[in-house]
């Protein structure tokens, strides 16, 4: 990699009797900047932008990797309108996002508030709550979840103590998705840490002033904490929505790669994988990918639009 060879020292000041002219300095800086940017720039063109354009093209073609793509116009998108499994996967994914994300945020915020009350051993509790969010996306935890929510699993062992005969949570189409939502909520730790950092930023004086005005605990939460925390809440919301729409590993592991039972955990990503890499319908998979981008973009745009009504930026007041 020739780009890594350091510039000779003499390119800066020093060799010339007079200091180098400004324009020469500027040119040298420009040249250095491009050397530093080169790997990133090549990567962006070859690994990101190029493939983006290609996938847009593929989405209008019939393509199975073996033969050259053949142009089919809007066929893939029309097929999506009548593809009942695709509709099912959209339903599953929307349910997951619309239930899982708010639930996760509520849990994360509640625990952040609890930890922020100056309890002893904060660092310890923070770690305990944070660890699952690091491990939650791993295959190993997916394996664990398969057992915990299985017919003879841990959850049912507990229910049996109370004389309840629990269902096979993940083998039952009615409950399989909820066990995955629970896994999602279980990994609330990273959002909680972001909330904690936000809570630390709220000046103590505001609480003191509110207390002097006779505000109770709930009023202080409602009128001080919550408004000042809305930017962080918004940030977490956007981040979680974007992530949740792309859920794959856990659905794949828990359902054994099928999205079952009865397609009840057929996440959009899982169906995209099945179309693209299971059946080599690369054109259809590309079209699906672009629809996902559109969905995420629309969700994000809606969020930004409504954020004006509820997100409060103290420095813009």
């Amino acid at each position: 990699m020739s780009t890594l060879t350091p510039l000779p020292r003499s390119t800066g000041a020093g060799t010339a009797p007079a200091p180098p002219s400004r324009s020469l300095m500027k040119r040298l800086e420009e040249r250095a900047a491009w050397q530093f940017l080169l790997p990133w720039f090549v990567g962006m063109l070859l690994i990101t932008i190029g493939p983006m354009i290609a996938s847009l093209y593929f989405s209008f073609t019939d393509y199975n990797l073996l033969r050259a793509p053949s142009w089919v116009g809007l066929d893939n998108f029309e097929q999506m309108l009548t593809d009942t499994r695709l509709h099912k996967s959209l339903g599953v994914t929307f349910a997951y996002v619309l239930i899982g994300v708010p639930a996760l945020l509520v849990v994360a915020l509640s625990l952040a508030m609890l930890l922020n009350r100056g309890i002893r051993g904060l660092a310890f509790y923070r770690s305990v709550f944070y660890l699952p969010s690091l491990l939650g996306g791993s295959v190993a935890v997916g394996v664990l979840w398969r057992q915990v929510f299985g017919t003879d699993g841990l959850v049912n062992q507990f229910l049996a103590l109370f004389g309840i005969d629990g269902p096979g949570w993940i083998s039952n189409p009615g409950t399989a998705l909820s066990s995955l939502i629970m896994l999602h909520v279980w990994s609330f730790g990273s959002s909680m840490v972001i909330f904690l950092a936000g809570l630390r930023q709220i000046p103590e004086e505001l609480y003191e002033a509110a207390a002097l005005d006779g505000a109770g605990r709930w009023a202080r939460f409602r009128n001080v904490t919550l408004p000042l925390l809305t930017p962080i809440l918004f940030f977490n919301l956007i981040l979680q929505i974007i992530n949740s729409f792309q859920t794959f590993t856990q659905a794949f592991v828990v359902s054994g790669g099928t999205g079952g039972p009865a397609d009840s955990t057929l996440f959009y990503s899982l169906y995209l994988y099945e179309q693209g890499f299971g059946r080599l319908n690369m054109g259809y998979a590309s079209a699906m990918a672009w629809v996902l981008v559109l969905i995420i973009a629309v969700f994000t745009a809606i969020n930004f639009y409504f954020s004006k009504r509820w997100v409060f930026y103290s420095d813009r007041d």
Partner: peptide, 17 residues
């Protein structure tokens, strides 16, 4: 912008590449 891009969009062409 690339921060927000879902990886699915580049998945198929990257695989082809």
């Amino acid at each position: 912008l690339t921060l927000m891009l879902p990886m699915h969009v580049v998945l198929v062409p990257q695989y082809v590449l």
